[in-house]
């Protein structure tokens, strides 16, 4: 991981991070509809719907893995939240704070490795931590009226698992796939591609 020469963000870092966030802001907009449509499928055990939660947190991990600069995870997740608010998210302005809190989780994971390691375990940790911060937010702010053992705890646990899998593992392989298309050629992920 030799690309730690500078922690200063280039223009391309800022814009591409924002573009990832914007694209996911659009995805969130669609995912909100999917989430609603899937409600009946989870009617028997609503807490299990949290297995879909990880999608909300992909930009945090993806942003961190692609940009590899301090603040990338936080920036991506927050901008994605602002974008979904601007596009008319049903949750109003609270999503912004929620986005900040969620981004913080992934940011902590990358910071714990001093922004040097971006391997799969780190990505999973970032996914899990961002899931944890999201779960804590929901645990206290949205779900406090529900039964602790039957709902709040499984919901929180599933949120973390889902985030580790979808945002963590998913984010890692998504980054790989993006690098293979050549779209990330100006980022550290894209080193050692064959020449033609």
């Amino acid at each position: 991981m030799n690309h730690t020469d500078s922690n200063r963000w280039r223009t391309i870092d800022i814009v591409v991070a924002a573009v990832i966030a914007v694209a996911f802001g659009v995805v969130f907009w669609a995912w909100g509809l999917v989430w609603k449509a899937a409600d009946p499928a989870f009617a028997a055990a609503p807490a299990t719907q949290a297995i879909m939660y990880g999608v909300w947190l992909v930009p945090a991990v993806l942003g961190g893995l692609v940009i590899r600069k301090p603040g990338a995870a936080l920036f991506c997740e927050t901008v994605a939240a602002v974008v979904s608010a601007l596009l008319g998210s049903q949750w109003g302005g609270v999503v912004i704070v929620q986005g900040l809190v969620q981004g913080l989780g992934a940011e902590l994971a990358f910071a714990a490795f001093r922004y040097r390691s971006y391997r799969l375990p780190v990505a999973v940790l970032a996914g899990a931590l961002t899931g944890l911060s999201a779960a804590l937010f929901d645990f206290f702010v949205w779900n406090s009226e529900y039964a602790l053992v039957d709902y709040r705890l499984p919901y929180a646990a599933l949120t973390v698992v889902s985030s580790a899998l979808i945002a963590g593992v998913g984010g890692y392989y998504l980054t790989r796939a993006l690098a293979n298309t050549g779209a990330l050629d100006r980022f550290p992920v894209a080193r050692d591609r064959a020449t033609v």
């Binding site: 280039r10 391309i12 814009v15 591409v16 924002a18 573009v19 990832i20 993006l178 779209a183 100006r186």
Partner: peptide, 8 residues
């Protein structure tokens, strides 16, 4: 992302 790169 490509668009973003060009925009930058």
């Amino acid at each position: 992302i490509r668009r973003g790169t060009r925009l930058a």
